[in-house]
């Protein structure tokens, strides 16, 4: 398993657009991807699941990937979050 903590910098937090981008990009990997926010774990491949986490601008989230392509998935997540989801 690999993991890393990020600060969400997009002004609206992880919302429809940003969460949608994250979920669909993470869906391309075979490993499990979880977001841990305030001690709760959410499925990062599910937009609806991410939305229920109600992650706001400035919040810290931990991304955990485990499985075959975990390293690739984590670095993709890192790219997305740090570029503020500009694809």
């Amino acid at each position: 398993m690999v993991n890393k903590t990020f600060t969400i910098i997009s002004a609206d937090g992880l919302h429809l657009r940003t969460a949608g981008v994250l979920a669909s990009e993470m869906g391309k990997f075979s490993c499990n991807v979880a977001i841990i926010h305030n001690g709760m774990t959410f499925n990062a491949k599910s937009l609806m699941n991410i939305l229920t986490a109600c992650i706001k601008c400035g919040d810290n989230v931990e991304i955990c990937c485990s499985g075959g392509d975990e390293q690739e998935a984590l670095s993709r997540a890192e790219d997305l979050i740090e570029s503020n989801f500009i694809m």
């Binding site: 429809l16 657009r17 949608g20 979920a23 669909s24 869906g27 499925n43 491949k45 599910s46 937009l47 609806m48 699941n49």
Partner: peptide
């Protein structure tokens, strides 16, 4: 986003 919602794996 609405499409993503409906087709969300969890949903």
């Amino acid at each position: 986003g609405h499409i993503l919602m409906l087709n969300d794996p969890y949903m």
